[in-house]
């Protein structure tokens, strides 16, 4: 199936997964909301709220730096909690990927029962897969960036352009490796859901082979989908400064705009899975297949 057809089909099919996207959005909102309300509470109880009023009209470095210096402990604690929650959410997302892929594979309409059944069916395998993909990626990136960094740091150059080129090369190579690992991880999940393979590591190897064999098509699809998600963020960053949010109404508009973009990113993620499922279906050998 041509790449653009898969892409178009993925966008259309994911567009019909409204309830699934809504469920993922609500989960994301609830957990992030806990952190955000913690942030609000930390600020409100710090005793310096009145001084923050000028921030309504824009950033004020003096107020922010003094605030963080004298009353920032609560905010710092909330931020640390957010980072811990980020790690927890990685595991949560792994588990939820089983539910998402099961629903997309079966093409059934969304039900919590089916969603959680899918989550439970693949939870352990997907968590192992996440750990394996993450570990391989971290080790590989550390090696590439470490090599590039050490060469950049020791190269005898009269211009920083030489070390910058080394670092840029390292970053580009790292980005390419990261993309490959992300694709391998995604297709491994797709293969597990398709074939019910038991071994996460073997499936990761099989999916890596699949990605390499179908490198251009798989990468093209991934880049197309990533571009859609990236465009959402870029659009937000362009629009946000135009909305200074200096009144209650404007803050409400800001909130809806933010949530629209968050939902768009979640939709883009679902669309990527849909596209990968379709692509894998179109390229796998006819008949039932086991990863091993």
């Amino acid at each position: 199936m041509p790449l653009l057809t898969i892409f178009r089909t993925a966008l259309l099919r994911s567009g019909t997964s409204f309830r699934l996207i809504a469920a993922l959005y609500v989960i994301n909102l609830v957990f992030a909301g806990i952190i955000a309300l913690g942030f609000r509470s930390a600020i409100a109880s710090s005793g310096g709220v009145a001084a923050l009023a000028p921030l309504m009209d824009g950033f004020d470095f003096t107020i922010v730096s003094d605030y963080m210096h004298t009353r920032g402990d609560g905010v710092r604690a909330v931020m640390q909690t957010a980072l811990i929650m980020m790690a927890v959410s990685s595991v949560g997302n792994s588990v939820m990927a089983g539910g998402v892929l099961t629903l997309l594979r079966d093409g059934n309409s969304f039900s919590l029962r089916a969603f959680f059944a899918g989550c439970g069916a693949y939870a352990l395998r997907f968590i192992r897969l996440m750990l394996a993909t993450g570990a391989v990626t971290i080790v590989t990136l550390a090696a590439v960036l470490g090599l590039a960094g050490s060469v950049a740091g020791t190269v005898d150059a009269t211009s920083e352009n030489v070390p910058i080129a080394w670092m840029a090369g390292g970053l580009i190579a790292s980005a390419a490796l990261l993309l490959l690992m992300l694709m391998a991880g995604d297709y491994a999940r797709v293969m597990i859901v398709h074939t019910d393979a038991r071994s996460s590591l073997r499936t990761l190897l099989a999916s890596s082979r699949f990605v390499v064999r179908n490198f251009f098509a798989a990468t093209g699809l991934q880049l197309l989908m990533t571009a859609v998600a990236g465009a959402c963020i870029v659009l937000y960053l362009c629009l946000e400064p135009a909305l200074p949010a200096t009144s209650g109404g404007a803050i409400l508009v800001l909130f809806f705009m933010q949530q629209f973009f968050v939902a768009a990113r979640i939709w883009a993620r679902v669309a990527i899975y849909t596209g990968e499922l379709g692509f894998y279906d179109s390229r796998r050998p006819a008949g039932p297949e086991s990863a091993w």
């Binding site: 957990f31 955000a36 600020i43 957010a82 990927a97 803050i251 933010q258 979640i266």
Partner: peptide
């Protein structure tokens, strides 16, 4: 209250994105 909500919502948005970013391996 306005400034509290403005920055609470900003934090909410970026934490939502942070959690979403955490899903890249999942």
């Amino acid at each position: 209250r306005g400034v509290l909500w403005k920055y609470t919502l900003k934090v909410l948005f970026w934490v939502q994105n942070l959690f979403h970013f955490a899903a890249i391996f999942t």
